[in-house]
Design a binder for these strands. Sequence first.
RNA 1: GGUCCCGUGGUGAAGUUUGGAGUUCACGCCGGCCUGUCAAGCCGGAGGUCGCGGGUUCAAAUCCCGUCGGGACCGCCA
Length: 587
Amino acid sequence: MTNSTSLRTHSCGQLGAAHVGSRVTLAGWVARRREHGDKLAFLDVRDFSGVMQCVIDDGTDARSEWVVQVTGTVTARPAGTVNANLSTGEVELTDCTVVVLNAAEPPPFPIDQRADEVDENIRLKFRYLDVRRERMQRNLRLRASVNSAIRTAMEGQGFVEVETPLLMPSTPEGAREFLVPSRKEPGSFYALPQSPQLWKQLLMVAGVDRYYQIARCLRDEDLRADRQYEFTQLDAEMSFVTKDDVLAAISRAVLAAAHAATGETPPPIEQITWHDAMNRFGTDKPDMRFAMELVELTDAFVGTAFKAFASAPSIKGIRVDAATYPEAAAIGRNKLDQLTERAKQLGAKGLVWIKVGDAGALESPVAKFLSDAEKSSLVAALGATSGDLLLLVADEWSTTCAVLGQLRNDLARPPVHEGPYRYVWVVDFPLFIGINPTTKKPQPGHHPFCHPHPDDLVKMESDPLHVRALAYDLVLNGWELGSGSIRIHEPELQRRVFQLLGIDDETADRKFGFFLQPFRYGAPPHGGFAFGIDRLVAILAGEENIREVIAFPKTQSGLDPMTNAPGPVDVGQLNELGLRTLPRPAN
RNA sequence: GGUCCCGUGGUGAAGUUUGGAGUUCACGCCGGCCUGUCAAGCCGGAGGUCGCGGGUUCAAAUCCCGUCGGGACCGCCA
């Protein structure tokens, strides 16, 4: 690849000792000017590739962020003036001619590492200046190479890139949609896709066999560090496959992306069942970089006199190991009260804390209610030693898992980008995740097109909550990267699932007719997956926030400080769309 | 919808707890000096509605109420 254009012969960062003696022309921005009188000034010229020091002896005025074109001779720096901190630090440009291509106002913040400390709102307001910085250039280029590796991996496996519509009918299940008013059909609306889910399944019916797309998805839900209104997924679907075929194909793309970003290929991605993930880590997106696993204690308290434990279906505990987490294990009464409050917010009735004293004596407000046998089996089960802090929750199984899983994260989870990358497939998700309190019907865990596990079909009606789905998630360091499933391709089974959900034929036809009718014409067995590229790239880039790997992101309230979107529109535009706005509700 | 943190020259901070003149530090900016620096150095200067509104007070960056904006999280994200 060459960086030369009509206005330059090289890029700044590519020059080095090998170019000494060459006459070159660079173009870029003035990163810094160091003046030593009329006869000598150093101009650091920056472009996307790096910085080159230019020695100026004619007093040319060129200040921070002015756009310049510099022609000079690549020269080895004099002894003692080499800058080891700069990739181009062995050389400099001498005998320079500077052409000012554009002057510039002083930037609102320094275009270097110091801007990491600048208020993010200001960075976003001047995002075009923020992106000039090395960190953002690196992140965007990392993202591009991840995209490229994914494309190569998918195409190498026979996946065909197909673009799918952004304007589609509203299918109001799931995430809140962005709506687009129709001009030709006033009062009617398109929806923007939450994902290309329906389209890609139709492509399987259409015989495409293997589809992929680096697809933009849009969801009108509240924003977070790992969530934007619009985000990008690798979306894929394949025909005539089982779960393992899908996991293998997606694994290749993920590992290729990781290799492109880090230069290293991670080990094969391990698998854990959803039930094991919940049991051991208390969450369906386990962060397996650290231990502190949940320990089953229900059997240790059979027949206990302690009322809070006596009738609980599930008792679990975690051990905050004093050797690994000295600060967390040694927290005082005040912090323990806060932990208890946190547990209650998470749905627990309470939190039992036990401190293990020097002689192994248990110190706890509830110690007096526990028998010696219970104490010793508790200590044995948790492997507790002096100085440890033990946290116990007794409740429904799902609650003990969820509460302790969250406390485990609160107490010991490192920042998402730190430490080794621990990819894990979470498999065998339940088909339903509980009963809707109003409709009394089961709620789908993923979407209603997930294929039930064939072994569990017999208990679909009798015991729906214990039916597994052929559904799976990909998790990295405690972040859900994505999910997928084998889909239902048999109309009869689909009808059966809809019936369980309380969706009759007529309703199903009205809501999903355009999607279901094609399945009558011979749908192949198929399944797929989608994972979030923003999240993957953020972690691989060492960022804790996906905004850092998006060129123009929105703030947490969904605004763009640079363009001021969203904004009002002309009444004429509204009239054309047949729309009228309501006054904003008074506060 | 909720909880918590933040808002002070262009930028980052200190000052707020315990009210007393827009006070301070660093960077940047403007001018001067300076021939080997590299986040150059030295000297001088400019630059402010302390987010906004209201209240308490003789007096508010500081205390109270409201509001706007930013961030983290809960809800939400089939």
